[in-house]
């Protein structure tokens, strides 16, 4: 079997998800046996413009990003959105809570005019994506699964049920029983309830399940006396760009930019 040429790229992100690959340990050697790594800025100096599989970290936040991701899409046979920023927009999506000018001034102060900015989008909101690895950072066993699926040309489905499912199988005490609010009930599984296994809450980094029960969730918040604005704020930490499909101020700005 001829080895597939694999390239890593980063857009707006912290590069932490790529670091997860560097930190994989022994299975990294097995993975490197399977592929020919041609570009990976974080761990090697060589680079190549020819690749079969593009693994893309980060979200699209400038018009330059749009050009660049389109070029990558043209070259790659397979494109994997890698990590929350790429898969759902992630942390960078918090920018969409503000007006573009306002947030640009806030971040860059007097130099703001030098920095081009557009509303944060996930990769699939700009170009076609073949596979997504959710998570902030990615859960390495899931990345290996996705990579195997991509190399064999079979689909990978991110589970469409709540993190609670995996959490119960791991027999963790429910965070709500400890009096702590957790995003497990609305967040897509696939991480093996990684954070809760380590006594942390679920932050919702993998994005919402496709059909979250709005009424039911409101009941839960009421029951545990969690204020709705607080939840909205926390949810937007990772999930804001989801709204770009719906009527949203950020979308209006986006249309303005594109016309």
């Amino acid at each position: 079997m001829k080895k597939m040429k694999v390239a890593f790229f980063d857009f707006t992100c912290c590069e932490g998800c790529q670091l997860q690959v560097a930190n994989m340990g022994e299975s990294l050697l097995e993975v490197l046996d399977l592929i020919e790594l041609v570009t990976f800025r974080e761990v090697m100096s060589e680079r190549s413009e020819q690749y079969d599989v593009a693994i893309v970290e980060g979200s699209i936040t400038t018009s330059h990003d749009v050009e660049r991701i389109k070029k990558i899409r043209e070259t790659a046979k397979v494109l994997i959105a890698y990590g929350s920023c790429a898969a759902i927009g992630g942390i960078n999506g918090m920018k969409n809570n503000f007006g573009l000018e306002e947030i640009r001034e806030y971040v860059y102060k007097k130099d703001a005019r030098f920095f081009d900015t557009i509303p944060t989008r996930a990769i699939h909101q700009v170009v076609k994506v073949d596979y997504a690895v959710n998570g902030c950072p990615v859960y390495v066993p899931e990345f290996v699964k996705v990579l195997k699926a991509a190399l064999s040309g079979i689909p990978y489905r991110v589970p469409d049920y709540a993190v609670c499912v995996e959490c119960k199988l791991n027999e963790n005490e429910c965070m709500y029983d400890k009096g702590i609010t957790c995003f497990g009930p609305v967040t897509r599984a696939g991480c093996n309830s990684w954070c809760i296994n380590n006594n942390n809450i679920c932050y919702g980094c993998r994005g919402l399940v496709s059909n979250p029960a709005l009424n039911g969730q409101k009941d839960i918040l009421e029951k545990y006396a969690v204020p709705l604005p607080w939840i909205e704020n926390k949810m937007n930490m990772y999930n804001k760009p989801r709204e770009l499909g719906i009527d949203d101020p950020a979308k209006t700005e986006l249309r303005k930019l594109e016309s």
């Binding site: 079997m1 299975s27 097995e30 993975v31 046996d33 399977l34 290996v144 699964k145 195997k148 190399l151 064999s152 049920y161 709540a162 609670c164 499912v165 119960k168 199988l169 429910c174 497990g184 009930p185 609305v186 399940v209 059909n211 979250p212 029960a213 009424n215 039911g216 969730q217 009941d219 839960i220």
Partner: peptide
């Protein structure tokens, strides 16, 4: 149904539920 959030807790903790999903997992040697 209006109240349920489909978290699956009720069945996962049930002593008589026995549904399972079968999954193949290939090793990295393919």
């Amino acid at each position: 149904g209006e109240r349920c959030v489909a978290c699956g807790n009720c069945t996962n903790v049930c002593p008589t539920c026995y549904c399972f999903d079968v999954r193949d997992e290939i090793n990295l040697d393919f």
